[in-house]
Amino acid sequence: MTQSSSSRLTSLDAVSSNPVAEASGGYHRPLSRRHRVESDLRLNLVSMIDVVFLLFMYFLLTANFTLGEEVFLIDVPQTQQAGMDDPFELPDRPLIIRVATIGPGEADCAIQIELPGLEPTPTFESLYRRLTDHQVRPGNTTGLFMTDNPIHIVPTRATRWEHTVETLNACLRAGYTNVRLIQPGS
């Protein structure tokens, strides 16, 4: 009698210390010796994977798909109707910039601003500085060109596209607004 009651007490102690049994709302099932050693506590990964993939899809769909691209906006001049030109407006003489690729490297190009007395500019940074120096603005005594003065970029047929775009970027960066790419020169 005493022996059986002590064995029952041992069994109850084992059940109360089992977290699975506690989590199941007080339902106590007698556990075997094997179950006392290996716990039945398992994590259900299926629902977690589902939720992770749903979140993954959400972020993919809401992400920006431009893939790190930007654009240079170039307005195309609309055809003007007859009689729309101002007869008193002086024609703006375009500033012509010639660009030629002279080697395989990224910096191998020759840039020439068609202005009397100007040496060819070796880099796009120096082109930008010259364009800024010759811009009409308060306090600048060497200013020659308004920001809306037309600039015509004239690459050669063999000029690489990256050099053409770099020239365009230097002009726009200097603040000029009327920049055009012209038919390739010789």
Partner: peptide
Amino acid sequence: VEVAEEINLPAPHDSVSVDP
């Protein structure tokens, strides 16, 4: 529609390009 991977786009320095 938008991406052709064969194209290696130019990447100007200190670019003033804008987001499409």
